[in-house]
Design a protein around this nucleic acid. Structure first.
Lengths: 258, 258
DNA sequence: GAGTGGTCTAGACCACCAC
DNA sequence: TGGTGGTCTAGACCACTCA
């Protein structure tokens, strides 16, 4: 089968005496990179279908099995979703009952959290150094700051502070946030084309200060879970920093280890 | 290729008018189940190699590709480890620098935790109801209780209480634990044949009581991370309950979301 | 019935490791 | 040099979805 510019394996370049990191990559990984580039470049948008495996195989000049393996990995990483008989689709947060892709909070009794949202504040600021650093911006760069509560049955459970790069979220206003129903990540996708694909969290136990105690209806000094989440889009680019304070008197943070 | 008792797909039984949950399983999943059975039954022990893909393919009467896909899944679940050119091996905790397979604690500065162990206590008890329930035992059944500290550079960081089913850990004594170097999970594997393959954690923020405060060298009321971990062996059987109190003043609990 | 992903096979060749 | 896992191919057939 004819193949084009894909380097079939390690480059057959002039002899490399000390080939430290040959970084040879198999065909299916090169296909995977091409697919990621397509996602990143907006060739296929969130929720849409990508071409069939056969079509991609023809396009890239490889066998269907090779495309399949590339897609397998992307599906395992939750970037793509396969649906038998229908096709392969770009994963999205902006859909149906998905509800809180990254939130690990569970009620002590019962199943789903089913939390209500309450927007407290949304303003544009200049990024302080510690935030700018994590978002790979410069201190003083424009930044959007959002504060909100998530309510359980009778008490507030989560106080979230969210920081976003100002240039990526230009038209983000209180009104826009209030009009939107569903998780923020859905809004970020459909309105701003920012797609979170991965996040890392740092969890600590802290004591409630006066402000957070008042908002969460607990006594000052109450132990709270502090969850600092940095979210990334394609290319490991950080695009959101979030600091949540969780009241864990009736909920817990769930984690599965493999 | 001749094949034996493996039902090649959905059973061709008499017509099933309302085939609610046919639970048809592809060949490679049946192979996977056979491999798990082999692991569970002790046919291949932790750290040992399993037969080559070609040999397994012959044994089960399927193609190498089918065995490969079964092994792929088991490797993804960390039950098996592939090593190119050498073979496929049963994953083990009892090896080298693995160090704390499930511990998610990281220092604020630096890389590895590098914590020192200090055994405080090890005694046999009768299981109280709330522990028995989670370990799927009956209240009053024999149980081993272990308490220990993990030390950081200058302060204790983790206070662990560990509860184990008494019948599975018959000869577990303070002396045996003290003689052992390396993580508990390694000891459990080599000495008791109990292999943890999965765990789930429930994390909360709590206030230090008098006892834990003294042991962790903090003031009473200091917010601590409470990490309750239930660990499972093959067949989703729970075999360890652990409650850790983490001092998160210089460390944090790290989690990656995908 | 046409098109999609899902499974299974058989065979080729490569990369890595141990002897 | 022989054996192992790793990649790639080509083709067959199955299961699912939708028009």
């Amino acid at each position: 089968m004819p193949r084009e510019p894909l380097s079939s394996s390690a480059p057959a370049s002039a002899s490399s005496p000390v080939d430290a990191g040959p970084s040879f990559s198999p065909l299916y990984r090169q296909i995977k990179s091409l697919l990621i580039a397509g996602l990143q470049g907006g060739e296929w948008k969130a929720g849409e279908g990508i071409p069939s495996e056969i079509e991609l195989a023809q396009r890239y000049g490889v066998s269907q099995g090779t495309v399949r393996k590339a897609i397998d990995e992307l599906a395992a990483e939750n970037l793509l979703v396969r649906r038998q008989g229908r096709g392969t689709f770009v994963a999205t947060h902006a859909e149906q009952q998905q509800q809180y892709r990254f939130l690990r909070l569970m009620p002590d009794e019962g199943q789903e959290p089913g939390l209500g949202r309450q927007l407290l504040d949304c303003k544009r600021q200049r990024a302080p150094a510690w935030i700018a650093k994590q978002l790979q911006m410069r201190a003083g760069d424009p930044m959007v700051e959002v504060r909100r509560l998530l309510h359980g049955k009778d008490k507030p459970v989560v106080l979230d502070d969210i920081w976003l790069p100002g240039d990526l979220f230009k038209g983000l206003t209180t009104e826009r946030l209030n009009k939107h129903r569903g998780p923020f990540y859905g809004l970020f996708e459909t309105e701003f084309g920012v797609h979170m694909i991965r996040a890392q969290e740092k969890v600590k136990a802290v004591a409630a200060d006066e402000e957070s105690a008042a908002l969460l209806h607990v006594a000052v000094g109450t132990p709270l879970l502090s969850v600092e989440r940095l979210s990334f889009t394609y290319g490991d680019k950080p695009v959101e920093l979030r600091r949540g304070l969780y009241n864990t008197s009736t909920h817990f943070y769930r984690n599965d280890l493999n």
